[in-house]
Nucleic acid binder design. Structure first.
Length: 482
DNA sequence: TAGCTCGTTGGACAA
DNA sequence: TTTGTCCAACGAGCT
């Protein structure tokens, strides 16, 4: 009997999982494993919100494996040591996994592959549509601008059909094998990973979410049936369900980008045949590809600006109180506070508001974008190295295809434009619920009498003055060498 | 090769 | 109230 080891990492699904399918094709018996590596500097060292999601996602994967006669083996430690030990003890024919492209994982996987020499390690493209190493401009350089990237790749869509989920997964019983005698290879209960903090926050944060492959599939189907048509406009209104909210599922691979594309296209074979909403939605999936491509081609941009001029940007020197006020949703600017509170309460924030709070942190408070990136990474359930770094660098103006420096979002105008009736602000900043719409996004303009009894802080900064200061700060670096 | 246009998400200001 | 123009400057991609 030949044995195949399937190493799950950020691909917690059975359908459209090329590593799993290949293992079943090539081997008689499978051992599905997840290895948790929480050492400092490893990819396992993730934010609190994503840890909570990870716990539930592993649980869901285990359940769907069990339903097919298998189970997930959870181990903790260094994959570079554990995988060769397991491979040796089980005398495997192959070790199968789906590739990730962030620099930390890439480096680790390279070592793992080397350590598995002779055990038939195979990796697959599964979490992206396009292989970053092959996605280059005609002259061989990496893309830095989204539009040409999109124009050149849209013709390849919808691409292949996603793989079906295997009906049965013939599984090795660890207890009967040599591996069961080695302590470090013994299965541990999921709770031992200690991913769930002992805080009521972890429960309440997860209330709006259903985790796992089945939930992701259901959510996609619903979105395509109802919201996708209006996505182009509705996605900008934070008070309504206009976006797909698939980002955390995509991050953990509970659904693949290929599955999303295939379902959106249906029987249609070209982008031109999609309606405007669907096309914009597909474009967003390709934006995710673009972010992963950028991080693959320019790995240093995880925490350093792509545009080197920004290394010398005159950021504020002391900013802890302002940073804390921003994190807690106590800046005195309603739309900012609504967004930051939504983030803390649910692990998610509407994309329109993400741009506004990022612009405010960077351009009105002059706080380095890396601080915001770190906070998002710790609090978002969809926190993804590539998308997060690209988004923040876009807001800062230091990234690829970034917003020009003079583009400073005015949170009052953004609020009045995208939260006209104030539903979003009233939902997350209830202390303002009685303020009339005219002043809801600028309560500091209420008369002192009207302000009486209003338990809401004064704005942290004057928007006009701080905007001017930001433009002057950008002036200081714009002539220096790129 | 040179010249041209264009660039996810905006705001201020003048007319 | 609405609309047009400007706010930099550079690389990508096309002709």
């Amino acid at each position: 009997m030949s044995v195949g080891l399937v190493w799950f990492r950020q691909d917690f699904r059975l359908a459209d999982n090329p590593a799993l399918t290949a293992a079943i094709d090539q081997c008689d018996e499978i051992l599905p494993v997840y290895i948790h590596d929480s050492r400092e500097g490893t990819i396992g060292q993730i934010g609190q919100a994503t840890q909570v999601w990870l716990h539930h996602s592993l649980q869901a994967l285990h359940e769907s494996l069990t339903a097919r006669g298998s189970s997930l083996h959870v181990l903790a430690g260094d994959p570079e040591k554990i995988l060769p030990q397991l491979a040796k003890a089980l005398e495997v024919r192959g070790v199968f996994w789906n590739r990730c492209y962030d620099p930390v994982t890439l480096k680790r996987d390279k070592s793992v592959k080397k350590a598995l020499d002779g055990f038939g390690a195979q990796s697959f493209l599964a979490n992206l549509l396009f292989e970053p190493v092959k996605t280059l401009k005609a002259n061989g350089d990496p893309y830095r601008v989204f539009t040409p990237y999109w124009k050149n790749l849209m013709h390849l869509l919808p691409g292949n059909l996603p793989l079906p989920a295997p009906r049965k997964i013939p599984t090795v019983v660890l207890k009967k094998t040599a591996a069961s005698k080695i302590k470090s290879l013994q299965d541990i209960p999921l709770s031992k990973l200690e991913l769930l903090p002992e805080l009521p926050w972890a429960d309440s944060m997860m209330t709006p979410w259903a985790v796992g492959e089945a939930a992701a599939k259901k959510k996609l189907a619903r979105f395509l049936k109802t919201e996708a048509k209006h996505y182009n406009d509705a996605r900008d209104i934070p008070s309504i369900q206009g976006t797909s909210r698939l980002s955390p599922h995509l991050h953990f691979g509970e659904i693949s980008p290929l599955q999303i594309i295939a379902a959106t296209f249906g029987k249609r074979r070209s982008v031109m045949s999609l309606n405007v909403g669907e096309e914009t939605f597909v474009k967003e999936v390709v934006w995710r590809e673009f972010a992963h491509n950028l991080i693959y081609q320019f790995p240093h941009t995880i925490d350093k600006p792509l545009d080197a001029r920004f290394e010398k940007f005159p950021w504020a020197k002391k900013y802890q109180p302002q940073l804390t006020a921003w994190q807690r949703g106590q800046t005195g600017i309603p739309i900012i506070d609504a967004g930051m509170r939504e983030l803390y309460a649910t692990g998610w924030m509407h994309n329109r508001v993400r741009m506004v709070v990022a612009s405010f942190l960077i351009k009105n408070l002059l706080i380095p974008w890396q601080e915001g990136e770190r906070w998002f990474r710790d609090t978002l359930v969809d926190a993804d190295v590539a998308s997060n770094a690209m988004g923040w660098q876009w807001a800062a103006g230091s990234g690829a295809d970034a917003a020009p420096f003079f583009r400073v979002f005015n949170p009052v105008l953004q609020g009045e434009k995208f939260d006209k009736e104030g539903d979003y602000v009233r939902c997350w900043v209830p202390e303002l619920s009685s303020v009339p719409n005219k002043f809801l996004h600028k309560p500091w303009e209420l008369s002192p009498i009207e302000r009486q009894g209003l338990d809401y802080p004064a704005p942290l900064v004057d928007l006009k003055i701080s905007r001017k200061a930001a433009l002057e700060a950008f002036e200081a670096i714009k002539t220096s060498q790129k």
